[in-house]
Design a protein around this nucleic acid. Structure first.
Lengths: 131, 131
DNA sequence: CTGAATCCGATTCGATACTG
DNA sequence: CAGTATCGAATCGGATTCAG
């Protein structure tokens, strides 16, 4: 999101920036119950490529959401877990998840956003109110 | 979130798809307290272009979040308001907003200039968090 | 006043191949 | 195992112009 100086902006902006990536919330969800290795995350987030998973994890780490621990072993072992901020973010995401479950089925459109196809339904109609 | 038509991993997916646009949450926020005309929204969401505002509004309408009322008058008058689903979505967004306020300003490398905290985002963009 | 149409750059995402 | 490098494709967003 670009800067909008002087705007009345709420914390939503910051949150959306942090979780704006295509796979961010799925990564957070995969980490909600403990520590995961890179390979585990790759399996828990089906469809994500190594490149994108790595870059998203790096961004989440830079944003203070995810902690990255490198164990100097052979074979290499890197473990990811949520920071306290990450846990709080996950908690804050819960109502949104509930909203999605409740309303997604009534959300129309074979629309694609960020590569996702929404569940189809009759197109939104124009409401005309004659003055 | 790859091409698995009709299937969302969890409710979060659906919600993120709906609010994934760059200005979506700001539009929702601008509508939280009543009906707004197109021109009002343009002023309430500083920086958005007409094209993007119009397209985002159309997407929100198709997703059942926003209601669009066209008054057949001269000059034209079009009013936007939240549907019940939109109101619920706004409510579900509240914890995320709180999280943003609580955590974004302590994000690493965040610096305060002119009373606001600027959060660097790739590449070279800034998010302004009121404060 | 509302907003559709077009052009175009910026950003993101994905596939493949390669490395310590 | 855990990434990185490179390339290309798709998408998104911005500026301008035009229309009812």
């Amino acid at each position: 999101m670009a800067a909008r100086p002087g705007a009345h902006v709420c914390g939503i902006d910051a949150a959306m920036t942090v979780i704006g990536g295509k796979w961010k919330v799925l990564i957070l969800w995969a980490l909600h119950d403990g520590t995961r290795r890179f390979g585990e995350l790759r399996r828990l987030v089906p469809g994500v490529t190594e490149k994108v998973l790595a870059s998203h994890l790096r961004e989440l780490e830079n944003d203070g959401i995810v902690r990255r621990e490198v164990h100097d072993e052979v074979p290499p072992r890197v473990e990811y877990s949520l920071t306290p901020a990450g846990v709080a973010l996950n908690t804050a995401l819960a109502p949104l998840s509930a909203w999605g479950r409740d309303h997604a089925m009534t959300a129309p459109a074979g629309r694609r956003i960020h590569g996702v196809t929404l569940i189809p339904r009759p197109p939104g109609r124009l409401v005309v109110v004659s003055g």
